[in-house]
């Protein structure tokens, strides 16, 4: 792994009043690496993304990205530096077409003019399998298409770090497989990924390393196969997912 991490989070804490949602979380991500995050509902996974992306401010801790301290930067400034995210519940711009959604990402996330962003947008639409729907209104999409749009819009900002929040949730097996293929292609272009997911086999197909969160704390981290075999994960995921050694 490269010596300078792309992302380095240390001692991150988020409190809402008396409620401790993120409890002293530290993690690092090397350039080009893909990290999976597992954890039961309410473990603070999405809050961790909100902290990394800048949507909410931490109560304590620091976030270093690409060698700079971004802890106090706004979400839009972090986006311009190369952090992009998808939302667990898709937030498409429903009044726009798919193309215009992606154009918004390229125009503002990269600061491009419309003309300069045009080719990039078409390229992203082709890669994410949305080109046929380029002129459809984002409000009229299926769940898979909305998930793909989340991915496409994030990619249009040309991120070096992509945060995926349960992007495979609610998809059929075939849809999930096709999405995994797309995400692997994205990874192959050198984009680092942190992926929160309950669909464990999708994670195992992509990530190099896995972190487990519970009650806002990091309780395990390491090789995906080893993590899945660990007793902590077994106790959390008991009955939720069959995670025998057949995957990956």
């Amino acid at each position: 792994m490269a010596s300078v991490p792309l992302l380095s989070v240390s001692g991150l804490v988020k409190r809402y009043g008396a409620l401790l949602v993120t409890d002293d979380v530290s993690l690092t991500l090397a350039p080009g690496e893909a990290l999976g995050i597992l954890g039961p509902n309410g473990a603070g996974k999405t809050t961790l993304f909100n902290l990394i992306a800048g949507t909410v401010a931490p109560s304590a801790g620091t976030i270093m990205f690409a060698g700079a301290d971004v802890t106090t930067l706004r979400a839009r400034e972090r986006c311009r530096r190369g952090i992009a995210r998808s939302f667990q519940i898709p937030h498409p711009f429903v009044g726009m077409t798919i193309y215009e959604n992606v154009l918004t990402g390229a125009a503002f996330g990269r600061g491009l003019t419309e003309r300069a962003a045009q080719d990039r947008c078409i390229d992203v639409l082709e890669r994410t399998g949305l080109i046929r729907k380029a002129n459809a209104l984002a409000g009229d999409l299926t769940l898979l298409e909305r998930k793909r749009l989340e991915l496409a819009r994030a990619l249009a900002t040309e991120p070096s770090l992509l945060l995926l929040d349960e992007i495979a949730g609610g998809l059929t097996e075939a849809e999930c497989q096709s999405l995994i293929g797309t995400i692997r292609d994205v990874r192959a272009t050198g984009v680092s990924i942190i992926w929160i997911e309950h669909v464990v086999h999708a994670l195992l197909a992509v990530v190099d390393r896995m972190t487990v969160l519970d009650f806002g704390r990091k309780i395990a981290e390491g090789d995906p196969q080893a993590i899945m075999a660990s007793p902590e994960v077994a106790s959390i995921y008991m009955g939720l997912e069959d995670h025998g050694g057949a995957h990956g």
Partner: peptide
């Protein structure tokens, strides 16, 4: 571009902000 930003903000402020819109 400004119209694009306005339409985006109207539909989702949180997504707009995380796509770099001020």
């Amino acid at each position: 571009r400004a119209g694009l930003a306005l339409a985006a903000i109207r539909d989702s402020e949180i997504a707009s902000e995380s796509l770099g819109i001020d």
